[in-house]
Design a protein around this nucleic acid. Structure first.
Lengths: 166, 166
DNA sequence: TATTGTTATACTCTATAACTATA
DNA sequence: TATAGTTATAGAGTATAACAATA
């Protein structure tokens, strides 16, 4: 358990991280903004999946996912096939064209990082990756533990807006 | 120097970090969005400063800084006094009210981190903080590097993508 | 002519809510 | 009634460009 000053310093780094994120975004192709790149990356990483699964991996609302997916589908980078097991669902699949786009993006961003982090050791890059993954996990875990959050309004975090309750 | 796969994994963590950032943003007061909180934090941390200095610390365009500053000034959290040395400039200063607001925000965010990172050691929090600070520095440094990186030898126009050929 | 700061405009990302079509 | 996905709307953040006042 760290001290308050340490948390405040960490929070400042969180805030400053936006500059890094924007710098990365600048080298994306004009027709492939960050949201589209994230969709391609996750489909390339985890293979075919449904909208709901993708929304969970993106950690955004399904409505947001739907827009990003529509954008990449319009450009032919993914296909949406009906799910035979559930006709409400759609299975997302990377096309050959989408794979090419993904490769291009991965090349650009990797080269950029290789340049920017040229004086980082292999181990340091790994450390940052691990710590950020754990950070994300620590935030995800706090969904159901019996702690005492300051605002006990009793709602579960979901990837989508609740349905109407009438 | 790390391998490409390692960079790609790091990039995925960058993308996923958005969820953490949004989670933090949710506990900010309704009248104090992230941009305002950042202004208060930096003024509290570094003391009085001019717009241009604040823009540099925020790592955003001055036009963006101007909007954030206007927002907090309207609420009486900072004061903008004319700079006697340069009448184009304005000196920004945290008011008592603004300091109170800042304390409240720092309390909330620190408590939240203390809760989420309750199983992190003091040293781990420090490591993440240091690595993120270094990451930011590594990006800042690459503004005018006269060095010749090994990968790109003759290819230009990596940042700017031509318009879509409809 | 250059710099400091402001404002207008546009674009991206996000969440909420309402809607459809299935289950 | 509940779930999967879509769409409409609104809010926050950002960058570019045009502008005013001053250097």
């Amino acid at each position: 358990m760290a001290e308050k000053a340490q948390y405040e310093e960490l929070i400042r780094q969180f805030s400053a991280f936006g500059a890094v994120k924007r710098e990365m975004g600048r080298l994306l192709p004009a027709d492939c903004p960050g949201g589209s790149a994230a969709v391609l990356t996750l489909l390339g990483r985890h293979g075919d999946m449904r909208m709901s699964k993708l929304a969970e991996l993106l950690a955004v609302d399904m409505s947001v996912t739907s827009r990003h997916v529509a954008h990449v589908a319009e450009r032919g980078w993914i296909e949406r096939s009906p799910d035979p097991a559930d006709k409400r669902s759609r299975i997302l699949r990377l096309t050959t064209s989408g794979q090419g786009r993904l490769d291009e993006i991965a090349d650009r961003t990797s080269q950029m990082l290789a340049h920017r982090l040229s004086d980082w050791s292999d181990d340091e890059v790994g450390q940052l990756t691990r710590l950020m993954a754990r950070l994300r996990a620590s935030f995800d875990d706090c969904r159901a533990p019996a702690a005492r959050p300051p605002a006990p309004s009793g709602d579960e975090q979901s990837t989508r807006t609740p349905a109407i309750t009438t």
